[in-house]
């Protein structure tokens, strides 16, 4: 399973892969989504502060954490955006940092509504 860095053919959210990972356990899936809903905005906020302060080390660490939770959840494109930010921060490319953060926020903006919609759906 090979993926291009910029593969726009990837869905924002790969629900099928996630369902396979949780063995179709809806309760576990809800659990994960709830954890994500709580942890993601907090980590994003810290990342924004780190980028604003040009704290590269902290930005790389937070981007790594985001990458982990996003890829576990099947948020493929957003995870890729977090990964790019991690690489940029680790390489010390301060100039590209803000753009990378913007790209990450952009991807998140298309992922979050999908998750919300799914949660609303399974609740009923």
């Amino acid at each position: 399973m090979k993926k291009n860095e910029d593969s726009h053919s990837d869905p924002a959210w790969n629900l099928a892969e996630l369902l396979e990972r949780v063995d179709n356990d809806q309760e576990l899936l809800r659990d994960l989504l709830n954890i994500f809903k709580e942890d993601f905005p907090l980590t994003m906020r810290s990342l924004e502060s780190a980028v604003a302060a040009e704290d590269l080390k902290e930005a790389a660490r937070l981007a790594h954490t985001l990458k982990g939770m996003l890829s576990s959840l099947g948020g493929v494109r957003t995870a890729a955006a977090a990964a790019r930010l991690e690489v940029i921060a680790s390489a010390g490319e301060t100039a590209s940092l803000k753009g990378a953060l913007q790209a990450l926020k952009c991807e998140a903006a298309s992922l979050l509504p999908e998750l919300e919609a799914y949660m609303a759906e399974v609740r009923h």
């Binding site: 990972r21 576990l28 954890i35 939770m69 576990s72």
Partner: peptide, 17 residues
């Protein structure tokens, strides 16, 4: 051992199962 709560929960449940 994983610092990400989401990954931890996922691993925990998968292994318990």
């Amino acid at each position: 051992a994983d610092d990400d709560a989401l990954s931890r929960r996922l691993l925990e449940k998968t292994l318990e199962r």
